[in-house]
Design a protein around this nucleic acid. Structure first.
Lengths: 218, 218
DNA sequence: ATCAACTTACAATCAAGTAAGTAACTTTTG
DNA sequence: CAAAAGTTACTTACTTGATTGTAAGTTGAT
């Protein structure tokens, strides 16, 4: 839990090697978790010793941090050019993401496992996930503001609840889907839930849970 | 990963000791995860050696299994007498559970961490969580059937999607809440999302995500 | 006297990290 | 432009410290 290097990082071949290691680490941390996944596992995948990996990343903690950062960069790069969508297109984008994810169990599992593991004591991924959720909630909140403005709706107080809820369903469905892919339709369930939540913000219904208000005797 | 005993388990004092261990294990596995939480941690909490714990439970894997089973039993015991609710009361019960959970970060964290960790390779908690979600989804599905029948609604195709979604939001919100309790209102967000999803099943709205259907040129 | 509930002691791994060495490549310099 | 010097990308070997599990012994209760 000490070392760190990293300053010149020039050679293109070296960068490629680092990427190989990062990819192997996603695979390993995804399938075993951070605590149970070992540097040996990762080293084997890229054909070097565990000391070789420490040469590149300094420590296991640092490797995890760079893994998380790297994936974020990659995902952003995917929608390079297409600026990050906003307003209603953001919600469509989230649904599309769910459909894409249904074919990428590996990455989905890595995020599902690591995000939950990150709440444990002293987990090195915790700051990343705290920030990630804060950012994502803010982006979704902004999309809601835009959509509400478009429709002349005074922005409802439920927006904050809805932002967290949308991210939450997506994550929660992933766990259930990973446990039993035949029992849960990740893409369609995500779509359904996102639509339900967006609808609830834009055109609130009376709570279906309300007690029948003393309908009869007793 | 071998041994197992367990046959007479008679003395009442012994049972109490086992419960102490189980409680300590919930605490440890909750705060560190199963892979990172050690028998030593647990042993320290109850004032014995790690070998003492193995005497009672045979192996770490077995201990986890019994921890999960034990909590399930306890929770069921809590609503003993009050049969498990059904129909609309089930949804109200889920919301109430969210409110209760907002004051029990310890148990919430244990479930959040362990359920996600259980999707990893060879995790001993996996069968438990597979079964748990299967059962819970079926219970929620049944509640939907009852509610639909009450209102003369032909049971919509969205029920299966909604069941998984309701459990998913609850779980997903817990993770966000554990990461930053000030940013997420666990109870109110759960309530909001559950109401939104139930509404979407009972009185479906047109999808708010639908493209504006070629509103203008281009 | 027996058995349950432990403890002590140990076995067998195994993991992260460090240190030092080596081969290849890059840069500096005369 | 070639030789020297330095740097990078590793490996081997080792340290340190944990961790689960086992075996055998001890003590107190029934």
């Amino acid at each position: 839990m000490t070392g760190q290097r990293r300053q010149p990082r020039s050679r293109p071949e070296t960068l490629a090697r680092r990427r190989d290691i990062l990819d192997a680490a996603v695979e390993t941390f995804g399938s075993k978790g951070f605590a149970a996944g070992t540097l040996q596992d990762i080293a084997d995948q890229v054909g070097m010793t565990h000391a070789g990996i420490l040469h590149h990343f300094g420590s296991k903690d640092q490797l995890l941090i760079e893994v998380l950062q790297h994936r974020d960069d990659t995902d952003v790069a995917d929608l390079e050019g297409q600026h990050i969508p906003d307003g209603m297109p953001l919600f469509r984008h989230l649904v599309r993401t769910a459909f894409v994810n249904a074919h990428r169990a590996g990455i989905v599992q890595a995020y599902a496992v690591l995000s939950a593991e990150s709440v444990t004591d002293g987990h090195p991924g915790r700051p990343f996930f705290e920030k990630r959720y804060r950012t994502l909630r803010a982006e979704v909140a902004h999309a809601f503001e835009v959509v509400c403005a478009e429709r002349g709706i005074t922005e409802p107080a439920t927006v904050d609840l809805a932002c967290a809820s949308i991210l939450a369903v997506m994550d929660g469905l992933q766990v259930q889907w990973l446990l039993d892919p035949t029992a849960v339709d990740l893409a369609r369930a995500s779509e359904f839930a996102i639509e339900a939540i967006v609808s609830a913000v834009l055109s609130p219904q009376p709570s279906p849970l309300a007690e029948p208000a003393s309908s009869a005797h007793n």
